[in-house]
Design a protein around this nucleic acid. Structure first.
Lengths: 332, 332
DNA sequence: GAGGATACTGGAAACGATTTCAACAAAACA
DNA sequence: TGTTTTGTTGAAATCGTTTCCAGTATCCTC
């Protein structure tokens, strides 16, 4: 390549990297030779010298979950724009796989990481794995110290949803969410309780279910819940497999939505929007989460020690549809 | 590192790569020193020398589509097991982004690629981009030449679905699928027609809609379709946004499923399974697709020029549920 | 026109591994 | 014992870049 352009290696490097001190002639010759040869610099060699890989890793519990996948897509788009490639690892919430993936990322010296750990970031083993000086952005998990993070205001969302159901007259409300070791569920539970507390309502009537992810479990569990004499009149369900299980359970027990049972989805998925009746849902912008995470990471990568902000908190909206109604028999 | 173990660089390399001709003592010393120092070889340096990156790229139209995401997840799991990392690029079916992503992959000299191009592989620009000697596995798209590929038998699936609906008495059936430039849709359309032809039925009664992806378009289009006097009595809809749009359109026009309209989903998603009534669906294993693609690529990567097979064809099953019934008024 | 600042250029030393090759020691064989 | 074979080792070259440094040409200033 250098010979093709008839200049030295150093000049090629300078010309290609848009460095200063390059004469017009050399710049011309180099770019001509480069395009004629279809030359593309070798990332390995460059990375070896500059100690940067041009890649960022993304650790999510489950890439097949549309909630995560949409975030990944948005982040990937922004990062590619900035010249980075995105490496993904889906950890299935398994601490072992999580650790091995993080180790792999570290071994490959990725420039940065977007992480949504299964267990929370407080976890020491996880902690020490991230602590290699690699810039990290936490996505919707509790950050420690000064880690930049993108957070979603699940607490306010859950509070608004609960308030809305209470306003319709519901008193026995079940919250079906995922593993409470993770921030989103914890925040939702808190918001749920706050909504009851602010009205001085007996929280004993509130029912709270916390479950692991598998859809079948959600289904069986919800069946039992709905068959109980003191069944809830409204359910707030996490809008992926748990919502699916809930709707199937309602169908199986012959309860009609919203007449016999109000259903509110946490997260606005295809399922919620297309269901008959359409499911009222809490919605937040997954694209915004992904974009914001990428932006925060890019700030770090550029070395802006303190960019505009190192925490982003995104709002949650309540989208009213047809799946919630006053309970048939007011139980107040 | 070499000094820490008190041996030469070459010996360290040999010991770590499990090469032959390493004495027990040196192997012991090296591994001791390595674990004491937490030494991890530098992938950049190693890659520079061995001309391999230990990474494979994955190009999909939309990673946020659960159908793709599930495939990616399965492939990632298998590839990581084999020591490769997965780089993803979501191209939004935009040829420009597709080209730039492929160029980026090539520039980074990834060891292999899993690709599901938006337009089909026959496309020349796409073709030349993949033709760099990099092992490529085509995923559910028409392969050219001898490219290894993982294919899903959409034709047989669509045929079975159509046959089933015809058997119920339907004659006016609409097939709502995605962009016909892509193999899955093309195959489905072919299977759809074959089902009519094998019974010598007038294909004029069959209705066929082909659409671009946005859900709103599907919705509006389906509304128009359902309001027509000669509306179809059954719809076979692609099970992502198009199915969602179809169900909303049925709700909006007051048609009940399955009494007024039979609906069959192509692809078994949460939406199909949890809807009321549950939607009869064509199902194929996305995990199998991802795993098979990874396996085929690994074969190539290992240099098994001819592994057990370089094409995998996966079956499609019809899952009977409650969304299909005989048409109210037989129109034969 | 001399002197110094300024703009460019190419040679050579990194970066951190793998791999070739020659040297050496120990073992096997005659 | 001398010669070959075998096994093990380290020195040095290499991969393709970036970057430091010294050298040269050009320009400006007095």
């Amino acid at each position: 390549m250098a010979k093709a352009a008839g200049v030295s290696l150093s000049s090629v490097s300078r010309a290609l990297n848009g460095g200063k001190n390059v004469s017009a002639k050399i710049a011309r010759d180099v770019s001509a030779a480069a395009s004629k040869l279809g030359y593309q610099p070798d990332f390995m060699a460059r990375g070896l010298r500059t100690r940067s890989t041009g890649m960022v890793g993304c650790l999510v519990p489950d890439i097949a979950n549309p909630l995560n996948a949409t975030i990944v897509r948005a982040a990937e788009a922004r990062l590619r724009e900035a010249g980075y490639m995105l490496v993904v690892a889906s950890t299935a919430n398994d601490p072992g796989r999580e650790r091995s993936a993080a180790g792999e990322f570290r071994g490959r010296r990725l420039d940065g990481m977007l992480v949504a750990p299964g267990s929370d970031a407080n976890d020491t083993t996880w902690r020490e794995l991230t602590a290699t000086g690699t810039p990290v952005v936490i996505v919707d998990r509790d950050p420690l110290d000064e880690d930049p993070a993108v957070l979603v205001d699940h607490r306010a969302g859950a509070q608004a949803a609960t308030r809305y159901l209470i306003g319709l007259g519901h008193r026995r409300i079940a919250l079906l969410t995922a593993d409470a070791r993770m921030r989103p569920s914890r925040e939702r539970i808190a918001g749920f309780h706050e909504a009851f507390n602010e009205l001085n309502l007996d929280p004993g009537g509130a029912q709270l279910c916390i479950q692991a992810s598998p859809m079948d479990f959600a289904h069986a569990d919800t069946l039992a819940l709905l068959r109980d004499a003191a069944r809830p009149t409204a359910i707030i369900a996490l809008g992926t497999r748990i919502l699916a299980g809930t709707l199937r359970a309602a169908r199986d027990t012959g309860l009609s939505v919203p007449d016999d049972l109000s259903v509110l989805s946490v997260g606005d998925t295809d399922l919620a929007a297309a269901h008959t009746p359409a499911i009222t849902a809490l919605r937040w912008s997954l694209d915004d989460v992904g974009r914001a995470a990428a932006e925060l990471l890019l700030q770090r990568l550029r070395g802006d020690v303190d960019g505009p902000q190192s925490r982003a908190v995104l709002p949650v909206d309540l989208v009213l549809r047809e799946s919630c109604a006053p309970p048939r028999v007011t139980s107040g």
